[in-house]
Design a protein around this nucleic acid. Structure first.
Lengths: 258, 258
DNA sequence: CCGAATTTGTACGTATGTATA
DNA sequence: CTATACATACGTACAAATTCG
């Protein structure tokens, strides 16, 4: 059973040549060995240096292009994309496509919630405003009792969506939320970090800014506060993904040395 | 060889076989012809039905998989993932007819497009920027020739969504756009007003502001320009609804006096 | 439990078109 | 105009995983 011969690791069943190439090139790009706008080696050169067929090289380049890291131009060559520094792609490219999809979905959710916050600020009625506040204080209560705050967090966002008086916002939130990450604190990510007090305290602080803007009827401020909250959540999510990646890498390494 | 083929498509450059296959399969998926969880035809069958090589089929499937629409499993087949668009398809199917729904959907679309414009400003690469410009000038050309500009308008917005490098924005736009108003100028609303020159000229002016902001890389300006454009579109849509209402009232009155 | 058939994954070779330099 | 290099496409072969008899 301990056949370290064909050690196809449980986590990574695919050594996959093209992935190896992708990883190698990606590393070079992140190290800045090839500056943005510069041309990569030709496919022919790459086939030589990596010792694989052109098909593999093409597949690898296609994957990189799909992530937006490089931009092939017919007849000229493959060039490094200019604005990779700002885009999450640089980070997203590190992980599998599934996580990349989750991030993309989260981003769409961000777009929707930003606008819903702005609309809630100008459209909410008394009952809806009360509903948002109620969710906020419920979060507070759970926090003090050290109970899981996940549902309250979701309820807070849901109340805001509801206050737009556009039922589609709630629908969208439900659909997106169920599918990919209820913003924060949940599911496969029940790490200590996510559950830590200071972490949730930070969330609540961001929630308060949103709440104040909405009760003040300031749409612009509400949008800005929600944007800040969700971009911060995105960042936290990325960090958690990265942590998992490191964990995986370690476990692979451990398995290999066995 | 009088094989002038099927070059009836207006796409000037790349028919691109794999893209054709992608579009065809995507259409089937969105139409719900293959339910989530179901298996697609095998690669061999697809090569036969489409009359192309397996390479093309594989490339097309790779793209669909990159977008998270399908999930290939070695030895078993390619399966449809439960996807947001299908959920929205079912969601929007219930309420396609009512105008108030249409307005609400338009509002959600507004949220999505505002953010996509901002993202496009900072993430677009050269090719994507060219695509947006191309759509813009296509609109211009059609305007001068007094041809219907609807498709070009849609293409402009679609190009911007595409420039976010987040395929979900395009997905959402496709789903929402089909169900409820392609922004402006189309479908049940082919009034003289909608087709008037000054009207479309105004649209193009708004488009220009968006285009300039994106090419300048100014995310905030892009968002603001898109917001202005879509809220103006909302307003125009409401006015058209009102106009129809008046027309209806008049006809009722006329019928009554008869 | 095993093995054969099916289906996708990977790989290589080749040919032609097309844009760039 | 020519040469280079990428884009597209087809064909083939074998490997690996799954399914099912």
């Amino acid at each position: 059973m301990a056949s370290d011969m064909a050690t196809s690791l449980k986590v990574e069943r695919k050594p996959k040549l093209s992935e190896t190439v992708v990883a190698a090139i990606r590393k070079q790009l992140q190290a800045g060995e090839i500056q943005p706008g510069q041309k990569l080696p030709t496919e022919g050169q790459l086939t030589e240096t990596f010792g694989v067929s052109r098909t593999v090289i093409r597949e690898a380049l296609a994957k990189l292009a799909a992530d937006g890291l490089v931009e092939p131009r017919q007849g000229a060559g493959v060039f490094v994309t200019e604005h990779i520094s700002t885009m999450f792609g640089a980070l997203a490219a590190d992980m599998g496509s599934k996580d990349s999809i989750a991030l993309n979905v989260l981003e769409v959710r961000l777009a929707i919630e930003i606008e819903s916050a702005g609309l809630a600020a100008v459209r909410r009625n008394a009952a809806q405003e009360a509903g948002i506040q109620e969710a906020f204080f419920e979060f507070e209560r759970l926090l003090l009792n050290s109970e899981p705050t996940g549902p309250a967090d979701l309820a807070f966002h849901r109340a805001i969506a509801s206050a737009t008086n556009n039922p589609f916002y709630v629908e969208m939130l439900d659909v997106l939320g169920r599918r990919a990450i209820p913003c924060d604190v949940t599911s496969p990510w029940s790490t200590e970090l996510a559950q830590s007090d200071v972490y949730q305290r930070g969330l609540q602080r961001e929630h308060l800014v949103i709440l104040n803007a909405i009760t003040a009827g300031d749409a612009e401020a509400a949008r800005e506060a929600m944007r800040a909250h969700l971009t911060a959540s995105q960042q936290r999510y990325r960090e958690r993904l990265h942590a998992r990646q490191v964990f995986y890498a370690d476990s692979v390494k451990a398995a290999a040395t066995e």
